[in-house]
Write a protein that binds this DNA or RNA. Structure first.
Lengths: 250, 250
DNA sequence: CGATGCCTTGAGTGAATTCAACGCTTGTGG
DNA sequence: CCACAAGCGTTGAATTCACTCAAGGCATCG
């Protein structure tokens, strides 16, 4: 019974705020029951905390309940490449659980709360819940699709296009999981984060952002980026935008 | 019964030459039986042929039986980014089947033979064969891992490191599925392919290859690239190399 | 009030691109 | 059999893009 542990968790799956969003698919009672038992706890960490570490073995996988994180790899001399950002509903650590060692690290960009699942129960998920197994594969394929687009950006788009693409991407992802509140959304990251995602230097990222700001497409404010003209920004990027209907999550 | 259709196919699953390789995991009789029925046919195409087209819906997924292909995306003005190469045992088109529309195209780099599977039977795979469902997720996670490393290369490695990385990667992937034959393996691609994978111009790719050739690490020959000093090439790239044990395939 | 972190800017350098051309091979049609 | 075109690799020169270096401004925080 979820109530038995309600004191430990803040959020039982049955009352998961993410399920209320149109962005996610509906769960059957059976699926919800399994996921409730699959969930082993919650983890909350501060901005800047490291959640998963490259090269380690993690006994858990996580779903972002609230907050924002990012996935990155390092070269020996410290060069960093950010692969992707994790929004509410996103799964973290699946790679590590399936393939042994993690090949990337994850860090919190804001205070973040994660649902914790134990890898040991993953087997029974595949054996007894085909629909959830399908969802896991879907989630992995979706990450692949996102990485494809990032690769296209870094490899073939100009610095301006690339920056516009990344900001559009984050903006769209953020909107998809935002409550309908009309408040200004400021993307909470530093220019160093953008630089490390775009494959550009910090200085050149700054100058490129400036060009977008001069066109009134974005504004840098309160330690983050505010998108002023989402449509025009998307047009500059030459990207088609996210096309997702109701998506699954665990 | 496999015999009933033996006339149409060249390769029944039970005699699949890939299963003989140590590189792939063993299948149970039950799994083999299912996959045999899952396989709907074979497709052979010439070098340069397009196998899957971005933006379309494919009723099939494919496994490479022999030959080499590559996965790419195009921008409107023709700029091309190659995401990855497909070797024997690799699955193609899973993304399209799971998520509707394909977001990339696939082209044959050599004459290639593919096993054809129908998407309509994918459902029963998830419902009745948990181990194969797990494999599919594993395969998707592996592609993600490879893309992570490519992203790191394009974003943060120098042109020389990046080129050394890509050639090392292709060389290792090729070796993993090669019969033990000691023949010189020439990677059959043009410098334009490399350029479009590395995010470099054709001219600069040529000059970078030249630098590697001057160091006697590679040689350009017969319309392809021969790796002469794999260890040193790997060292130049700063990459750790593939670490795969027996991997699954469908 | 001196650190520290982050954004900003200019100047100089280096890397990668575009442009242009040439050589070699292969294939094709007269 | 030759002429010609097409594809691919190679090279040099000029240009543009992005990087490094260096410094300064402006907050925040102990």
């Amino acid at each position: 019974m979820p109530d038995a542990v309600a004191g430990k968790w803040h959020t039982p799956c049955a009352k998961c705020p993410l399920r209320a969003l149109k962005h996610f698919r509906e769960f059957s009672a059976d699926e919800l029951d399994f996921v409730s038992r699959f969930k082993a706890g919650e983890l909350s960490v501060e901005r800047g905390a490291t959640i998963l570490v490259e090269g380690t073995h993690s006994p858990h996988i996580y779903t972002v309940l609230s907050g924002l994180g990012f996935r990155y790899k390092l070269l020996e001399d410290g060069r960093r490449q950010i692969m992707n950002y994790a929004f509410p509903g996103d799964l973290l650590g699946l790679q590590g659980v399936l393939m042994g060692e993690l090949d990337h690290s994850v860090e919190a960009l804001t205070p973040i709360t994660l649902c914790v699942f134990e890898r040991s129960k993953l087997e029974s998920l595949f054996e007894r819940h085909a629909s959830l197994a399908y969802d896991l594969t879907w989630i992995a394929a979706r990450e692949e699709r996102i990485l494809d687009e990032h690769l296209l950006s870094i490899g073939r788009r100009s610095a301006l296009e690339r920056t516009a693409y990344l900001l559009s991407y984050i903006h769209q992802r953020g909107n998809a999981v935002a409550g309908s509140g009309g408040a200004k959304k400021i993307i909470p990251l530093t220019q160093q984060h953008l630089a490390d995602t775009l494959g550009l230097s910090l200085v050149h990222t700054n100058k490129t952002l400036r060009r977008l700001a001069e066109r009134r497409l974005i504004r840098w404010q309160d330690g983050g980026c505010e998108v002023l003209e989402a449509d025009e920004l998307l047009r500059v990027s030459g990207w088609e935008g996210l096309k997702e209907t109701a998506r699954p999550f665990i």
